[in-house]
Design a protein around this nucleic acid. Structure first.
Length: 884
RNA sequence: GCCGGGAUGGCGGAACUGGUAGACGCGCCAGACUCAAAAUCUGGUAUGGGUGACCAUGUGGGGGUUCGAUUCCCCCUCCCGGUACCA
């Protein structure tokens, strides 16, 4: 044995005489129970700060306690556990915590449906799901468990809120929400279906109510710039965040409104097109529109229509573009021409100034609107100086050269933009400005099951922060929920309060925080979950930043942006060091399954579980029709979609664990697809993973039943044994790279299966063969341990490691000597088509390789009637002979 | 609408930096074992042609760059995620 195993303990290839036989039959339930009991009794995964050791903080996004784990959870947490256990085997001090994102809307819906208090529902869900997580064998430090609905958690964000209010980082202003006029309640976008409230069915109205905001826009520049430092984040996520923040440089321009005092402010990134403005458009909620509506019934009707429907961007942006002239005009700041002002449903008050200048010739949306309403189209940009006007049936949106633009004609777009901006500034009609698409974070919700916002209103209605000494504001539990209005607002014992002076009567704020507030700082709190005197303590600086964060791609923008923002807030109040919370990010793809549904007369869909449906296949094995087993009637086959309650296409992990054990479920989740990719569920695939584990167990059983392996010189291998041993060390190298660097667990598993297949093919019981078998088994235990931790721990002990459990063993290293090859195979192509493969010495030089390639029979046949132009040799891969 | 991603055998996927397309698994087919079935084991399995050695075609569609493209560039189709109150 070479000396590469410098770690104490693990010595694959040097069998202990003390190996002992194992049962013939693989019994996952018994194995997993015993191993999990050891982990729990010995507190294997509880960790403390140890400055002498390298730390690794591995965090998976905590679950919403919806009732039972779903497959997305199993996938997320298996990925995290595999990475954690791998890092632990490298010798690091690994923190892997778990907790509960426990506030939220589903608890209120369940309360209405089942007449159970949100707190009781949530806590019983947590209890059940905690047992499911334990049953899956995840190596969590359960001593750090937290739930965001616990007052010892949420009290600290109340404290932070009062600090931020003092600093002006949170503030109150009007915002537009979905309002259900029947239920008299604010609706989430999800609760608006086809423009109607999901319970009442009433058309949804937009309503402006006072809301609390966090000033995330103040951090926009830093949030954008720091993305460049996140080398361990997927480019797609960084791109989405950049686009979401949406920094743009442009000019804010004032148009004087004819006959009015107040000018109309617009922002544009294309000042070069200013001479092409033919109308202005404002949002329906814009003061100019409101004024006009007050004196004109038609305008009022239009503005009123604009207030129907959801506030969701996807809804607003796909509306038919409609508008109505206000009967007002503005003065063009450079030409002095009168420009008509319209109100339009595609202009949103919450974006920019709530007003836009329209240049139909150079903006596609403006163009279509102008065509529809017979507004003039004035071309002021041409592709090049010598081009004449383009006869357009579409807007010309590229930069170019200006025409018809007074003194600016002839300039290119970039120069003209600067010159026009300078001229506007000189006239006092505009200034260069940076604008962000990002809006301030609306953190208040008109909901019961959330963290109360610690604010009091005096008789003047002015908000005041609750005094730090009187925190927390405890959310009353056991409150009846009926889906109408806010239950807190009806609870006078909650709303009746005094101002911080202790005497002046006050009304308590009944809004609660957006649950994204809780999920924005749980990673930090895991480091010091028992801190009773402060939100965070210095322990966070040992563990932070998170070395690996793992969660769904659906969180690419909102949660991950809010969490980054919050970390910077915590830094600026002195609670953490460093500007970014998550060093490496892995965004896992969704777990999907087929969907089946029926439509009723109103078009509403009812979904049926895949297990409740019988499928009919065509000759190629594709599903062509499906029948509901319960009534024998057909159901429609829907697309393959994310497993969800609403689509009723979830597979319950619990049933699989009970049937196959946690190891099989974990193995399948990791083997079926790479982690970033969507995973399509397959029952048969699970069966295949189970079969592999059964084969591995039987192989170990037979090996151990044959008695101790005779000791012998490690190098005495030849023929098939040496080949398997070389593959073994190549597998160590591949699996280490796949798990450690690439996070491609599926190819790691494939390599381990190949190694196992090769070892299974070894015949006989010669000492060298038996020694290789033993080394393969030990190495497979080590390499599979992160993915299949229970079975491998039992096998590891049985192979003779009674003194050292697998959780304390070290990751193996590949032995370069064992991987040596004397000869290599090269592919020979003629004009890029494979014609042969040749075996050459590993150190063959190019002339020797070329000579070998040209003498191959099949290659010679293809060279017979042609001339060789060139020979391309790619070292250790192929030879391409280019002929003509 | 906008932003991001994806599409490879019957199915999930592999091919990491432009270099053998289809590793590994599932399914299917054949064989062994069995009175039989299940389980297990062995072999085969992209498509078309050929007894065969081999040959042609093939990575959503269309074009391009290159000795060579699943990989890079341009255009298009479809599907998925997000779209600020689902989490």
């Amino acid at each position: 044995m070479s000396s590469d195993h410098s770690h104490s303990g693990a010595h694959p290839g040097q069998p202990h005489a003390s190996g002992h036989p194992i049962a013939e039959r693989y019994d996952p339930q018994q194995i997993e129970q015993a191993v999990q009991r050891r982990w729990s009794n010995q507190r294997v995964f509880e960790v403390t700060e140890d400055p002498a050791r390298e730390k690794f903080y591995c965090l998976s996004m905590f679950p919403y306690p919806s009732g039972r784990l779903h497959m997305g959870h199993v996938r997320n947490y298996t990925i995290g556990d595999v990475i954690s256990r791998y890092q632990r085997m490298l010798g690091k001090n690994v923190l892997q915590p778990m907790g509960w994102d426990a506030f939220g809307l589903p608890a209120e819906n369940a309360a209405i449906d089942n007449k159970v208090a949100p707190s009781a529902w949530t806590r019983s869900n947590i209890a059940y799901m905690r047992e499911q997580l334990k049953r899956l064998g995840f190596g969590y430090d359960w001593s750090r468990e937290l739930a965001t609905c616990d007052v010892d958690y949420y009290r600290w964000e109340q404290w932070l809120f009062t600090r931020l209010l003092d600093q002006g980082l949170v503030y109150r202003k009007l915002a537009t929400v979905n309002w259900d006029p029947i239920d008299q309640t604010v609706l989430a976008n999800e609760q608006v279906i086809d423009g109607r409230g999901w319970r009442s069915g009433a058309p949804v109205e937009r309503r402006d109510i006072p809301q609390w905001f966090a000033r995330i826009t103040q951090y926009a520049e830093e949030l954008l710039a720091d993305l460049d430092t996140l080398d361990g984040w997927p480019e797609a996520v960084k791109t989405m965040q950049r686009n979401w923040i949406g920094r743009s440089e442009g000019v804010q321009i004032r148009f004087d409104v004819i006959g009015q005092e107040r000018p109309l402010e617009i922002f544009t990134t294309r000042p070069d097109t200013l001479f092409g403005v033919t109308y202005l458009a404002v949002a329906a909620e814009h003061p100019l529109a409101l004024e006009a509506a007050a004196r004109d019934a038609a305008i009022a009707r239009f503005c009123d229509e604009c207030r129907h429907g959801s506030v969701a961007e996807a809804f607003v942006e796909t509306l038919e573009k409609r508008g109505c002239p206000l009967g007002l005009a503005a003065r063009h700041p450079l030409t002095g021409a009168a420009v008509p002002i319209w109100v339009a449903n595609f202009v949103l008050l919450s974006y920019g100034t709530g007003a836009v200048m329209a240049v139909p010739a150079h903006d596609q949306r403006d163009y279509e609107f102008a065509r529809a309403h017979d507004l003039p189209i004035r071309q002021v940009i041409v592709p090049a100086a010598d081009a004449t006007t383009v006869p357009a049936d579409a807007a010309f949106v590229e930069p170019g050269v200006l025409i018809e633009s007074g003194e600016f004609s002839g300039l290119d777009s970039a120069a003209a933009g600067k010159a026009i901006a300078a001229k506007l500034a000189a006239l006092g009609s505009g200034e260069i400005r940076v604008q962000y698409r990002l809006r301030d974070w609306l953190i208040s919700r008109q909901r019961y099951w959330g963290c109360p916002i610690p604010v009091l209103y005096g008789q003047d209605g002015e908000p005041q922060a609750e005094a730090a000494s009187r925190l927390p504001v405890v959310l009353p539990e056991n409150v009846p929920i009926d889906g109408e209005g806010s239950p807190l607002a009806r609870l006078s014992s909650f709303t009746t309060a005094t101002l911080p002076d202790g005497r002046t009567p006050a009304r308590r704020e009944t809004d609660t925080f957006d649950t994204f507030v809780e999920s924005s700082w749980y990673a930090q709190r895991y480091c010091c979950p028992d801190s009773g005197s402060a939100m965070l303590d210095e322990r966070v600086n040992y563990w932070f930043p998170v070395d690996q964060y793992i969660g769904g791609i659906e969180h690419a923008v909102l949660h991950l942006l809010y969490a980054r923002f919050f970390h910077k807030l915590l830094r600026d109040v002195g609670l953490v060091r460093g500007g970014e919370p998550f060093r490496n990010l892995l965004t896992q793809g969704m777990v999907c399954a087929e969907t089946y549904f029926r439509k009723d007369s109103s078009g509403k869909r009812t979904f049926y579980a895949p297990g409740a449906v019988r499928k009919d296949y065509d000759a190629k094995g594709r599903v062509i029709a499906a029948t509901l087993l319960a009534d024998g009637q057909p159901v429609e086959v829907g697309p393959i979609e994310k497993m969800s309650k609403s689509k009723n296409n979830g597979v319950d992990p619990q049933a699989l664990i009970e049937r196959y054990g946690a190891d099989t479920v974990r193995l399948y989740m990791m083997a079926a697809a790479p982690p970033e990719q969507r995973l399509e569920w397959s029952d048969a695939g699970v069966e295949g993973s189970f079969r592999f584990l059964k084969r591995l167990w039987r192989f170990a059983h037979e090996h151990l039943a044959a008695g101790p392996v005779p000791a012998g010189a490690g190098h005495a291998f030849d023929g098939a044994a040496a080949a398997v041993r070389r593959q073994l060390h190549e597998t160590i190298a591949k699996v280490s790279d796949d798990i450690g660097r690439r996070h491609k667990f599926n190819t790691a598993i494939a390599a381990l299966m190949e190694l196992f297949n090769a070892a299974s093919a070894l015949e006989g019981d010669a000492p060298a063969i038996r020694r290789v078998r033993h080394e393969v088994l030990e190495t497979m235990c080590l390499l599979l341990a992160p993915i299949v931790p229970h079975m491998t721990e039992v096998l590891w002990t049985a192979l003779g490691h009674d003194d050292q459990p697998l959780t304390e063993a070290h990751w193996p290293e590949a032995d370069p000597a064992a991987m040596q090859r004397d000869t290599i195979e090269l592919v020979v192509q003629v004009n890029g088509r494979k014609r042969a493969s040749i075996t050459v010495p590993a150190d063959a030089d190019e002339p020797a390789i070329e000579a070998a390639a040209l003498t191959d029979d099949n290659v010679r046949r293809h060279l017979a009637a042609v001339t060789v132009r060139k020979v391309v040799i790619v070292p250790r891969r192929l030879v391409n002979i280019v002929v003509a």
